[in-house]
């Protein structure tokens, strides 16, 4: 069990950092399945590995994620591509416990005593959400309190980690907001007054508040204009370089994946159809669907 760093001294190093080894899988997921509906005998044992949609033709059950296996090493960026409805977002929501997975296993090397985190108590899940993972949503309204101050949005995460000294909390919030290039003069303005790109950057600083080893990014650049996209992508790359945070980047945009991801997996109809090094997938796609994706890249 990891000790919660209660009333930590100023910027104590999180207890999990000592447990991270570069050659050990940080996150491992086995058989992650998310189903909406009861399921039936024909979709529990699909005759072929490939479906024509994620919906079972007999009972109408939606299989958003079908037995996904993957892992993540420390400091690595894993890209997830696929068309709308392929189950990418459901997958990260399951990892962040926003959605309850139907079945599957998820283990983190930084908390080996916990076993399968998908079965953990809600208190334990909340600990993992607050200390070990950060999430950046496509829609900033999901990840931020729009009418509270930006520094307060970051501070909320620090309160969850039992830091109750306003001076120290504000110094940490300022440090994080500065890191994502929010001018300090605006740190107490609500995100509702910010542009879309700034809101995404406030979300990123909030996600980084407790130095999590894993960051989940769900379509972070979708809906931003190209120059703003480039700045957010630059920021994500520099965070990885300087803080060594491992990330799962979900996007339907192959350009984003090419720029960020070391490894990539391609999802379709709730299943992983291909995975490998990003360059390999983009240069020499094997699966017909991946070939279609790569060839339709402008």
């Amino acid at each position: 069990m990891i000790q919660v760093t209660e009333h930590a001294a100023e910027r104590a190093v999180p207890t999990w950092t000592a447990r991270i080894r570069a050659d050990e899988k940080l996150l491992e997921v086995r058989g992650l399945t998310k189903r909406y509906g009861p399921g039936c005998s024909s979709c529990h044992q699909p005759e072929t590995g490939e479906w024509h949609s994620s919906r079972c033709p007999r009972c109408g059950t939606i299989w958003a994620c079908r037995s996904l296996d993957f892992h993540l090493y420390p400091g690595e960026i894993l890209g997830v591509v696929g068309e709308s409805g392929s189950g990418k977002s459901t997958m990260v929501k399951c990892l962040y416990f926003d959605e309850e997975a139907t079945s599957g296993e998820m283990t983190l090397s930084v908390c080996p005593g916990d076993g399968n985190l998908l079965q953990a108590s809600s208190q334990r899940k909340r600990y993992v959400r607050n200390h070990l993972m950060g999430m950046v949503y496509q829609n900033p309204y999901l990840g931020l309190r729009m009418n509270f101050s930006s520094s307060g949005n970051v501070a909320e995460k620090l309160f969850a980690a039992s830091q109750f000294h306003v001076g120290r909390v504000r110094r940490r919030a300022a440090e994080l907001l500065e890191r994502v290039e929010i001018p300090l003069a605006r740190m107490d303005e609500p995100p509702a007054r910010f542009s879309g790109g700034m809101q995404q950057r406030v979300q990123i600083s909030r996600a980084l508040a407790n130095d999590p080893p894993i960051l989940l990014l769900d379509e972070v650049t979708t809906g931003l204009d190209l120059s703003v996209q480039a700045r957010v992508l630059d920021l994500i790359r520099s965070i990885r370089r300087e803080l060594g945070v491992a990330m799962i980047v979900v996007s339907h945009d192959l350009g984003v994946i090419r720029m960020l991801a070391d490894r990539t997996m391609v999802m379709r109809h709730g299943a992983i159809v291909e995975h490998g090094l990003t360059d390999q997938i983009l240069e020499d796609p094997q699966h017909p669907y991946t070939q279609l994706l790569v060839h339709s890249l402008l």
Binding site: S122, Q123, R126, R145, F148, S149, S151, G152, A155, E156, K157, F159, A160, F164, V166, V169, D188
Partner: peptide, 17 residues
């Protein structure tokens, strides 16, 4: 779950404003 960070946030907002 003793998840009271939102309450602390409300106190914090008063201090900021």
């Amino acid at each position: 779950e003793m998840d009271y960070s939102a309450m602390w946030l409300a106190l914090y907002e008063g201090i900021v404003r």
